[in-house]
Amino acid sequence: MAVWFSQHRAALVLAFLRLLASPLNTLLSLLVIGIALTLPAFGYLALDNLRDLGRNATGVQQISLFMNLDASKKDVAEIENRLRAAAAGQWRFVPRDEALKRMQANEGMAEIVASLPRNPLPDAFIVEPKNTEPEALEIMRKEIAGWPRVAHVQLDSAWVKRFDAFLRLGKLALWMLAGLFGAGLVAVTFNTIRLQVMAHAAEIEVARMIGATDGFIRRPFYYFGALQGLLGGLLAAGLILAALRLLATPVGELAALYGSTFVLRQPALGEIAAMAGLGAFLGWLGAQLSVSLSLRKFD
């Protein structure tokens, strides 16, 4: 076990030294990998921010429940009980008198409301559901519509559906982009490792002759690929953080113009680690493919 550990440590150190041995090549490779990871990762964060924006937009994902005009306080209490039992999220009751007052407060409506023989507005509930998936909203709308003394249930489902379809399309495009750039990263590592194998051909040949196992020969290349990917992932995270910092102020100002307090979400530590881990995995994969092919000529 100690031998295994020390050989891995030696391979890691060797890989690190090889990265440092040609700083310009390393920097260029890291830039290519970093940019390849930045684009899909930035897209992911942009979509996530957009989803948050959609969730936070007032009135977008609300269900309005209108009671019959002759609904009693007992009927209202019954609806409240049902909402509570259904764990529907947050809701607030808007009594018909309050609704009328609000209407009166609107410019030019006071005279019209005053001329009405009686209050034409019903009691209402504004529900902000916990689950804002379009399917879940539709199910809830249908359920509420079936409750007693409910005259009308309103859900702006078309908007929600369009927004959700856009997000799904974005997600799909993002996966395709991520796949494409992931393959690019593997190809970059493949080529770098192929050049590394060629540069160390003499060492590999001698090591084989004097008893080196496949693992001993391959290990430094695997670590090289993984290290390169990991550093590329961290570089991508740095680029994204810098871009989000630059965008934060203008986005905040734009949101404020629409009365929103929306702020761009920064990548969490776990997401940065995932990016670096993904880079390391893809780098290792590229190295694995390259070493397997390149070392055949030494057999």
Partner: peptide, 24 residues
């Protein structure tokens, strides 16, 4: 000879021992 010219004489001789996993 098949010596490695990217390292010192000592490191050439160390190679078989590194392969065998001897402590440094």
């Amino acid at each position: 000879q098949k010596l490695l010219f990217d390292r010192s004489a000592l490191h050439n001789v160390l190679l078989p021992l590194q392969i065998a996993g001897l402590p440094h």
